[in-house]
């Protein structure tokens, strides 16, 4: 890890009218670090993630990102063209529902290749080869390259979505409940895959989840949210093994033990 943070978040708040989405959230994310945001549904996790990923405009506060040239840029002051370029090159966004992040009517190969074509790749053979490699890395057999995602199972779709996001070698990936809606054995494989990819590529990631097991497996650090406010944050193992807030204790103790 280097000495400068990748993402600097200061006092982010988002209000929906009088309602609080999230309030006064501040943290730094370092290169190669995986941060989990946990909390019950309605606690503001996804609102916070959307504010960070510029999918929502925060009511107040600032998010700064260190660009590839080393400069810190305030995301809200970037032009829309720059933001969208950032989103499809240096960032990834993995949706809970793969249908939101994939183009369901075009083949798996085109789904993976889209970002390459968006940044100017114009050689069909190269695009296809790269797409094939990425399908292999996310454990989708290469002979499915011309199939549409509709023909894929839920787990495969989610892996395809991950490949589609990682193909441009992003430095920061946002994930919104990446394992939601998958059955347990598929979840386990996906988590294993994600952990491997994050390590190999040195990715930074912010993962929103309500599943503490996901946080335990993937993240270095975690933040616990309740009613739009971060109530506890720290190293994942510390928070899970030694929760300080009453709410976190409740959350940890309510994990089902089989």
């Amino acid at each position: 890890m280097t000495d400068a943070p990748l993402l600097k978040v200061r006092d982010i708040s988002k209000f929906y009218g009088a309602r609080i989405g999230c309030q006064n959230v501040s943290f730094d994310l370092w290169p190669g670090e995986v941060l989990a945001i946990v909390g019950e549904s309605g606690s503001g996790k996804t609102t916070l993630l959307n504010c960070l990923a510029t999918r929502l405009m925060p009511t107040s506060g600032s998010v700064e990102y260190r660009m590839r040239d080393g400069q810190m840029r305030d995301l809200s002051r970037m032009s829309e063209a720059e933001r969208r370029f950032l989103m499809r090159t240096d960032w990834g966004f993995v949706h809970q529902n793969p249908a939101d992040g994939l183009r369901m009517a075009v083949s798996a190969g085109a789904n993976v290749g889209e970002r390459l074509m968006a940044v100017g790749e114009r050689h069909y053979g190269n695009i296809r080869e790269t797409a094939g490699n990425w399908l292999g890395r996310v454990e989708i057999s290469v002979d499915r390259i011309d199939d549409q995602p509709r023909a894929f199972s839920g787990g495969m779709r989610q892996r395809l979505q991950i490949a589609r996001n990682l193909v441009t070698a992003p430095r920061l990936v946002f994930m919104d409940e990446p394992t939601g809606g998958l059955d347990v054995s598929v979840q386990a494989r996906l988590l294993d895959l994600l952990r491997g990819l994050v390590q190999d590529l040195g990715l930074s990631a912010i993962i929103v989840t309500h599943d503490l097991a996901v946080a335990r497996l993937l993240s270095h650090r975690m933040m616990v949210m309740k009613d739009g406010v971060v109530i506890e944050q720290g190293l994942t193992d510390r928070v899970l093994d030694d929760p300080r807030e009453a709410y976190t204790q409740l959350l940890v103790s309510s994990i089902l033990q089989v």
């Binding site: 183009r103 075009v106 085109a110 290749g113 889209e114 074509m117 968006a118 114009r122 695009i127 296809r128």
Partner: peptide, 8 residues
């Protein structure tokens, strides 16, 4: 980029 997705 999307236009090339169609050609792809």
């Amino acid at each position: 980029g999307l236009m090339h997705v169609k050609l792809y």
